[in-house]
Computed example of a mutant assay.
Amino acid sequence: MYNHSAARAYQDASSHAGSPREREAALLIKAAAKLQKTKSADTTPAQLDEALTFNRKIWTLFVGELMSEDHEMPKELRQNLVNLGIFTFNHTLRIMTDPKSATVDSLININRNIAEGLRADG
C-alpha cells in the first residue's frame, strides 16, 4: 500500500506537467532533490527517513504500474525498471538499517537518469 503523500505528489505533478512521462520524471526529480538534501551534515534521522520513504513510495507506485501486463512499455524494458525498483527498495532498507554504511548517491543517480530518459522519450 502506498502513502497518501506519494499519491498526493503524483496528483500535484499531474496538474503541473503534461504527459504521464513528464509527471513521472518530475516525481523522480523531486525525490532526488529530497535525497540530495539529506547529504547535508545537519540532516536529522527523521529527515533522512522522510526522504527515503518518499522515494520508496514513488518507486512502489512505478513498480506497481510496470507489473501490469497491458502496460504499453516493452516487457524487457519494464523488467529492467522493475529490477531497478527492487534495487532501490533493498538499498533503502540498507540505509534505513545502518545509515553510516550506505549513501543515498546511487538512489539520486538512478532517479535523475530515469527522469532524464523519461523526458527524452516524452
Rank of each mutant, 00 (worst) to 15 (best):
A31W: 08
I58A: 12
I58R: 02
Y2H: 06
A6T: 06
V104K: 02
A46G: 01
N80D: 10
L93Q: 12
G18A: 11
A25R: 01
S40M: 05
E69R: 09
M1L: 10
T103N: 06
K100H: 12
L107E: 02
M96S: 14
Y2E: 08
D98P: 00
V82W: 08
L66K: 06
D98R: 07
S101V: 03
I29V: 13
W59T: 02
L66A: 06
T44K: 08
S19I: 03
I95R: 01
D49R: 14
A32F: 09
D42F: 11
P74C: 05
A102K: 15
L27M: 14
L84Q: 09
F87M: 01
P45E: 05
Q79S: 08
L52V: 03
T97G: 05
Q47Y: 09
L35D: 05
G18Q: 09
G117Y: 11
K37S: 14
D49H: 14
T97H: 09
R94M: 07
H71N: 15
S14V: 04
T92N: 15
D105P: 00
D98C: 02
S40A: 15
R119Y: 07
T60L: 12
H71T: 01
A46F: 08
P74N: 14
S40W: 06
P99C: 10
E24N: 06
S14M: 10
L35Y: 14
A120M: 13
T97C: 05
D105G: 03
S106Y: 13
D121H: 15
I110D: 01
H71F: 12
L118A: 06
L107Y: 10
E50T: 10
